[in-house]
Design a protein around this nucleic acid. Structure first.
Length: 272
DNA sequence: ATCCCTTTGAAGGTA
DNA sequence: TACCTTCAAAGGGAT
């Protein structure tokens, strides 16, 4: 059984043979210690929340993430050890508001620092005064062009306009968190840049992860959702519906209908 | 300048 | 309940 070559990118839409479980082409995810997640009372896999609806249980009872709240306004929230490797927390709650582009910090203990958008200093402020990266000014385009890109201090004439309609982004799910973390690594290995191609690889690697490894990300995602819920109690995913303009998708039907997709799965009804 | 592609998962809507 | 749709990240490519 040979592990997946680092950069096997099946030419589009070619079914890929799924590697057997246990083989981690990707290998060491991050140097975080498992106990951060396995210490818990509930079994690591399908983290408590996988059976969601439960992950969505009211935050009030979530003693699960003590220390997150109450967050000192403008201060650095006390991050519980349970956050483990991402000690900087998914919600860094920066005291100064700036950070390194996450991609550069991806490697070890990568901080999911997507949540520190400079713009938030102005608009990304929760009613409680807690800055949150999920809040981005709604510029009308692809939401925001990624925090990092906006880092450069441009003389923004339309700053005011943007600050008017902040958009609260969805919390990232487990796979998204995984992607954010591993993207740089894949890019380095494969010298690829196209996100679509990279995402295909990441999708396969995600499946190749052991349940325990995936559980880490499910747990992280669960915490993200919880925190997100607490920060924005009234927020709904639907709030962002329609904010992305989409072109007509013609080929959705014909190209999709149950075709094999990389990884031997079937395309989800998502776009085509 | 803006959307598409590509992935998985969460969540809302509809039948 | 089951299924469908949209969005979340990301950046090169297409329009």
């Amino acid at each position: 059984m040979s592990p997946i070559p680092p950069c096997v990118l099946q030419s589009n839409k070619v079914p890929v043979v799924q590697p057997s479980h246990g083989v981690h082409p990707l290998t060491p995810l991050i140097p975080y210690s498992n106990d951060h997640f396995s210490h818990g009372s509930h079994s690591p896999h399908l983290p408590a929340d996988i059976n969601q609806k439960q992950g969505v249980h009211r935050p009030s009872q979530t003693s699960d993430i003590p220390g997150f709240y109450p967050l000192p306004p403008g201060g650095v929230g006390q991050i519980t050890p349970s956050m483990g490797w991402q000690s900087q927390s998914v919600y860094p709650l920066p005291s100064c508001g700036f950070r390194q582009p996450y991609s550069s910090a991806l490697s070890a203990g990568a901080s999911f620092s997507r949540f520190t958008h400079p713009l938030m200093l102005g608009s990304g402020m929760h009613t409680t005064g807690i800055p949150h990266p999920a809040i981005v000014p709604h510029s009308g385009k692809q939401e925001m062009e990624h925090y990092d890109r906006n880092m450069k201090p441009q003389p923004e004439p339309k700053r005011e306009k943007e600050a008017k309609k902040p958009t609260i982004k969805k919390p990232l799910n487990a796979f998204m968190l995984y992607m954010k973390e591993m993207r740089a690594k894949v890019i380095a290995e494969c010298t690829l840049k196209e996100s679509a191609a990279i995402n295909q690889i990441l999708g396969r690697r995600w499946h190749a992860l052991s349940r325990e490894e995936q559980a880490k990300y499910y747990e992280l995602a669960r915490k993200e959702r919880q925190l997100h819920m607490q920060l924005y109690p009234g927020w709904s995913a639907r709030d962002n519906y329609g904010k992305k303009k989409r072109r007509t998708r013609e080929k959705q039907q014909d190209s999709n209908s149950g075709k094999c997709v990389p990884f031997g799965g079937f395309v989800s009804a998502q776009r085509g």
